[in-house]
């Protein structure tokens, strides 16, 4: 069991080496959540994504609950990152990308004509796979978002401190705010990117494999941070790492890729979406079970 599991997650660099089989994974029993999200913050309805002629994602229906962490897992090329990038219209930046269906944010379709993607992104922030601090000081990295979005800020110093405290980074950097962000370690840089995102006071935070470039200790700190941020934000995280999904998420969506019979192109689709505890203990779909038990993927 253990060995197959490790093989399944070997593609990801953020595997926790000390993590064993699924039975050891701690699932927060204190949190009692309804079977499906009530009044979801975001919803994807019949979402289809194309890159040119390539059908990347097929008919995804998902809802993301308020103050919940939703994980999207699945093998490479299953379209989970593509779905994530649709949620704040970052896919607009890819030439040839086309989105069909609806992405609702508080009931408003963000792909409707007249919706400004810039405004969407101020509400729905994003943290990337590779830490990408700006080549500026730590302070300016945080202040950048509020400055460009024209946020009304009474005291920028306070806002910077608040954001850095929110990302559990304040104590480590409070004496070197004017130094370059490039002097921080990878894990600190990633927490800086999270701090930068929460400085603009978003509603939803999207995370695209936020720990895959980090070592296990830095990963653990980011995961702790995610659990803390859940109280204030809605978090949607794409991860390659099933243990991570099991550790932090409330709900899990499992994606897989289906080869097209004629072209051989692999189209991503949603297989199963449920409470994380259900997905990892009692999945309904055979494909989900095969994936999480390491028989596939």
């Amino acid at each position: 069991m253990k060995e197959t599991f490790d093989m399944a997650s070997a593609t990801s660099s953020d595997t926790f080496p000390q993590m064993g089989s699924l039975s050891e994974v701690h699932i927060d029993a204190e949190r009692r959540l309804p079977e499906s999200p009530v009044n979801p913050v975001m919803e994807a309805r019949d979402l289809n994504v194309f890159y040119g002629d390539f059908h990347a994602v097929h008919d995804v229906n998902l809802s993301y609950g308020r103050h919940e962490i939703t994980a999207m897992i699945g093998p490479s090329g299953c379209g989970k990152s593509t779905v994530l990038r649709c949620l704040n219209r970052m896919n607009d930046l890819v030439t040839g990308a086309r989105v069909e269906g609806e992405v609702l944010y508080h009931g408003q379709d963000i792909y409707q004509k007249g919706v400004d993607p810039i405004a969407v992104r101020t509400h729905i922030g994003m943290v990337f796979q590779k830490p990408n601090p700006f080549p500026k000081s730590i302070y300016d990295n945080i202040a950048y978002g509020p400055r460009v979005t024209g946020m009304k800020v009474d005291n920028m110093d306070d806002l910077v401190e608040e954001a850095l405290r929110g990302a559990a980074l304040w104590d480590e950097v409070k004496d070197k705010l004017k130094q370059s962000a490039y002097g921080l370690s990878g894990g600190q840089q990633q927490r800086l990117c999270i701090a930068r995102t929460i400085a603009t006071k978003p509603d939803v935070i999207l995370m695209d494999e936020p720990c895959s470039a980090l070592d296990p200790i830095a990963t653990a700190r980011v995961e702790d941070l995610m659990l803390e941020l859940r109280n204030q934000y809605t978090i949607i995280v794409v991860t390659h790492n099933m243990q991570q999904a099991a550790r932090v998420s409330d709900r899990t969506a499992f994606f897989t890729a289906r080869p097209d019979e004629t072209t051989g192109n692999r189209t991503g689709l949603l297989v199963e979406f449920d409470l994380t505890s259900t997905i990892f203990s009692n999945p309904h779909d055979k494909r989900t079970e095969d994936y999480i038990s390491g028989r596939f993927g």
Partner: peptide, 12 residues
């Protein structure tokens, strides 16, 4: 990544 990071914060 720098451009994406900036755009994701709501910059034009």
């Amino acid at each position: 990544e720098i451009r994406q990071g900036s755009l994701a914060l709501g910059a034009t």
